[in-house]
Design a protein around this nucleic acid. Structure first.
Lengths: 206, 206, 206, 206
DNA sequence: GATGAATGAGGTTTCATTCAT
DNA sequence: AATGAATGAAACCTCATTCAT
């Protein structure tokens, strides 16, 4: 008798394989065969779990998003100050470890794919709603604490989230080392500008 | 070898068709046949001017970039203040006309393609060098005028350019109307933060 | 990877089809579609077993050679005299049955193809090494028996093998009936010249 | 007014180009473009002189034959002995100069092409009639002189012509140097066997 | 006479999908 | 539950041929 979890396990195994292949070789040239090879199963099995390639891709993007979200959850529940949580959040996207980079690759491919796919566009709405909410909640709590300047949290959140995406792309496309350092300067600047003066001074002195 | 006069015309005709198709239907499903149809010529003719599909794509991205640049050149030579030029520059990317949107579509596809293509990555280096230089020159001249606050022009330029890209993506993927208005708020905020106080106050009062 | 049992069968089926098509319609106009039709499978299946047309052709030539060799093996192990084996060997190439003619067609196409393909040239080296060895072994054993005149077996073998090829070509290109008879006269002459006198006299008297 | 010879000149220029391309790259991959490039004219001009590719090929093979024949004409009219003329004739085919090798390449491609083309097969009949006649005339005159043994001149001619073709192929496909030397041994053997004894002894002593 | 831009039929090859096992 | 052999539609690309200049 098969373990009840076998399906969930297999699906995870396949979706992880999709993201790895997309990250390594891009979405345009993604073949079901490549996914099967990466997951060490047959193409027949891939189709056993996902009716069409389209389904497979949609599911893989969803899975990538769920994992991205998972990795940031702990940041929100931290006891630290709002500014620290904001910095931790931004930092989590600027990391240069394999997992973060791979995930960004998938995101970049996702955007291009979503431009012409209503289902993916809907997924994007959900995703960016999440990101924006997370950031504006932190800002709002910072404003309540008195550590973050007044101003529309939605606008401030959009600024941060937008800058993260835009700079991430250039980071992926450019020479790793330099970009990473430059990007950190940009976000220090942005976050410092949101802080009330004392905090700002403190940071500058370090 | 085709005669220069005909060749230049035909190449332009074909490259325009590529960008139109990429913008309409995406890069992943781009077929040479579609390009030929759009340009109202035969597939054979497409291959007469571009050996491979790869060459065609590379050339189309270059062409898209050249046009994007061309459209911004006049902004730099304006006699207005640095802050006005900065606003005009940013505005030129936030426009919602067909041409601007089409161009952004091509850029989004370009990034994804460049992730796995060294030649395109090199093109990206050139392109973003240009954008960053343009913005930081304006900032530098504003600082000389005394209308823009001191601070590393490179960091400020990166912030703006990054935010433009990131917000453009979300604008492309989201519901047009709302996004456009929100994005303008973000950039007002960003540019105001760069202005020296009197100017800033003035803007807020409008 | 296909299961060995099915794979061997299918490959044989396809290679046989290639040789049939080459023999019927020539190598220059060989299309994968023709091969697929002849083997009663789809073009996709042909490529399932042979990556490229080039691979397919190379394999078909190898297969044709293996079969040519197989058909001659029994001649070598016969208990008859060296001269008889020599005659049987030569005869086996002069036969006008469909299989022999088809095989010659493939050989002729092979030579032309090999002129510009190092891999095929290497295969030719192997093949002609085999033919020359077979013939010179027979001659050597005939000299040991005392039925064949002394002389360098390599030179005698080259003479026979060369003449076989050259006359076969003309036989393929000319009117069948006459050529066949003429060719037999040529080889009778050549072999008689190799025999020691008594045998020679005997043959001439028939 | 154009020189009357311009057509003949151009045709010769093109046919020479065809033979060069066939010799270098083979017949299977022969493109009209290659011929045009080699002849330093446009593809349009090639078609101006030769309606179709088929016509072009046929004409090129004819031209190659005419030149091959031309190169041997002087041998026949020599005042030397029949055996010497026979040796000169055979030698003329075994030479390893560029022209001879190129010509053999064209012949090999010709045979393969002729297998499936009645027009080329007819040309072959004419050609081989010529070769056989040339050789058997020499043999006949040698027999009249008393320097060549009795025997059907047709059979002896076929033996020589056949061996020349067969060994030439292997020479083209194998390592040049060795083959050439081996081939000369074969023909020495064949021609010696045709000589009456005194001559034969003489040759062996050299 | 000569050109070369343009064509489009047709070739090889790819790959998502199916289905018997 | 899983496979992998087999498919065939469709993609890219080639190239002989045409024709306006």
């Amino acid at each position: 008798m098969p373990r009840p979890s076998v399906e969930a396990e297999r699906r995870e195994q396949i979706l992880r394989a999709v993201c790895e292949v997309v990250s390594d070789s891009g979405f345009t040239s993604l073949r079901v065969t490549d996914v099967a090879e990466r997951a060490q199963i047959s193409t027949g099995s891939v189709h056993y779990y996902f009716e069409t390639k389209q389904d497979l891709i949609q599911a893989a993007f969803e899975w990538n998003f769920a994992r991205s979200l998972e990795r940031r959850k702990s940041i929100l529940s931290r006891k630290s100050s709002a500014l620290d949580r904001l910095r931790a959040y931004v930092d989590s996207f600027l990391r240069q470890d394999a997992q973060t980079i791979a995930s960004w690759h998938v995101w970049a491919e996702f955007w291009a794919a979503a431009l012409h796919d209503p289902d993916l566009r809907e997924l994007n709405e959900r995703v960016y709603g999440k990101w924006r909410t997370m950031v504006s909640e932190i800002i709002r709590s910072g404003q309540a604490e008195g550590t973050i300047r007044p101003g529309d949290p939605a606008v401030l959140a959009d600024t941060l989230v937008g800058a993260i995406d835009g700079l991430a792309i250039q980071s992926l496309l450019g020479s790793r080392r330099t970009k990473s350092r430059q990007n950190r300067a940009v976000f220090e600047h942005l976050i410092d500008a949101m802080a009330v003066d004392p905090e700002r001074a403190h940071v500058h002195s370090t």
